[in-house]
Every structure is written in structure tokens, then in C-alpha cells.
Design a protein around this nucleic acid. Structure first.
Lengths: 134, 134
DNA sequence: ATCGTTTTGACAACGGTTATCAATAAGCAT
DNA sequence: ATGCTTATTGATAACCGTTGTCAAAACGAT
């Protein structure tokens, strides 16, 4: 049976207070700074649980998993700032149906999809002129 | 100045002969089995170069980077079989414009996007009935 | 309070990737 | 061809995020 511990709840709360996507290690550091004495392994486990339960979104960037609290049950995608990490949730039914259709068209079943848009948010666009070509 | 070595060319050719996405280590093993004596580090470097030059697509799955040769210059996405790795290149102008629009709408600049669809291809759907719920 | 089972957490181990650095070889100039 | 400069190679070590280990702690039912 699944048990409720203050650690898991602390991770959930810390995640909800984080503005954008955070890494497990980052969240652990934040929590430690805030005085919460939670083990690193526990943070990893709690985040993985939250993700499988649908209470958190996760994405992979540069070899590490990033997490973000999300409204449970709703399927959506993200618009993420490459510099500051600010994230906007975006829903796009058109993309959902497109993904399903293109999969079926090629005989694929049980389709999943990964759709994320990265860029520089308004603020960071202002601060950082294009010294990055991409 | 950029130099041409037989190692880099060997990696390019091995990648082009691979049917789906391959990992750096997998490609290295394949090449070694085929008698090509190329260092692992070199394979990593060559694949990274190919990806930045636009001659290879890359995606991240389960903590590792996978690569695939692609027609240079063309932007497209993939429909990937979760079981056998077979890959279909898909073009979707609708998704391209959608990504650009949603980014601009929220004030984001220099938008990139990651759009990949995973599923079980026709063959694998037949072989593996749904003992995986997702 | 007691008990059985789950969870925790410090640390080791793991796996993919990158850095190191001496040895090699590509490409240019002569 | 020869030498020279410098990018590249490759064996290995280091790195870093993540997961396994396992004894100790604690949840929840009784």
C-alpha cells in the first residue's frame, strides 16, 4: 500500500512553488536551502512518482530530466524559455489529432508524442540579443 | 581548419546504413563488428558534428542520445517504433507554422521545437499484443 | 503500543558522455 | 617529396545524473 510521508508532500509543494522546469538535483538543493532535510534519492523517487501519477510533467534536456507541476489529468505541451526556464502550458488539439492521424496512417498503434517548443521569452529576448545563432 | 579523416567518413557511412535511430555506443559496436577500428570517443565526436552540421537528427530517449542520418537541410520529424526502432520521416508544415505562431503569440523569439511521435509499428503491433498499458 | 510493510537516506555502483593528453596524421607551404 | 603546423585520434580517467543497496526509521492497521 502507498504511504503518505511528509517528504513526498514536501517535494510536491516545492515543485509547485517552482516557476519553470527544475531538475531533481536543483529541487533538492532548493529544498535544502529552505531548511527541508530530504534525501536526494527521495527527491528522485518522489518526482518519478509524481510524473507517473500525472501530477508532474517531465522532459529531457541535455541529458537530464526536468520536472514541473501540472494540472493533473490534462494533456498539454510546453513553451519553454531556453535562458530563464519560464514555461507556458499550451494546449493544441490540432496537434493531438495530427499526431494520432499520422501514426494511424503509417500503421502505428498506441501513439505517444513529444511536442515542446523552445525559444527565448519576451524578457530574455530583450536582455540577450542574438549572440546565439540558433 | 576542419580536416577530413577516414574515421569521420566511416561514422557517416555506418550511420547511413543504419535503419533507425542508433546510439553512439551501438554504432561503435556495429562498426567494430564490421572490422572498423574506430575509437568510441571519435564516434561520439563525429555524431555530434554530424548533428550540428545538419546531416543527422538526434533525439533523447531514456537518458541516451540517439542519432539517425537525415537528408541535409530538410526539417522534418519522426514516427518511431518503441520496440524495433523503425523510423518514418514525417513532414508537417501545419505543425511548423503552429509552433512558430504559438511562440510569437507568447512573445517568444527564435523558436525551436521538438516533435516526435512514438508508437508500435504495424509489425510490432501484430507481434506484441497490448501487455503494455501505455 | 505492536507488528508488518513501506519508505527513507547515505552511499556505492552504474551508464552514458566528455575531458585529458600524448601520439598520429591531414593539409599547407616549400 | 619533405617538413611543419595544428586538428584529430584514441585509451583511459573523470564526470555527472541517476538508480540500486540495505539497515534504520516510520506509516497505518490492528
Amino acid at each position: 500500500m502507498k504511504r503518505n510521508t511528509w517528504q513526498r508532500e514536501a517535494v510536491r509543494e516545492a515543485l509547485e512553488e517552482s516557476p519553470g522546469f527544475v531538475s531533481a538535483q536543483g529541487l533538492h538543493a532548493t529544498m535544502k536551502d529552505a531548511g527541508s532535510e530530504v534525501g536526494l534519492a527521495t527527491v528522485y523517487r518522489a518526482l518519478a512518482d509524481l510524473a507517473t501519477e500525472g501530477d508532474a510533467d517531465s522532459l529531457q534536456q541535455e541529458g537530464e530530466s526536468l520536472y514541473r507541476a501540472c494540472t493533473p489529468g490534462s494533456h498539454h505541451h510546453h513553451l519553454i524559455c531556453r535562458r530563464c526556464g519560464t514555461t507556458v502550458e499550451i494546449a493544441a488539439d490540432a496537434v493531438e489529432t495530427w499526431a494520432r492521424e499520422v501514426a494511424t496512417l503509417h500503421g502505428f498503434t498506441q501513439p505517444h508524442h513529444v511536442v515542446d517548443v523552445f525559444g527565448y521569452c519576451a524578457d530574455c529576448s530583450r536582455l540577450a540579443p542574438a549572440h546565439r545563432i540558433l
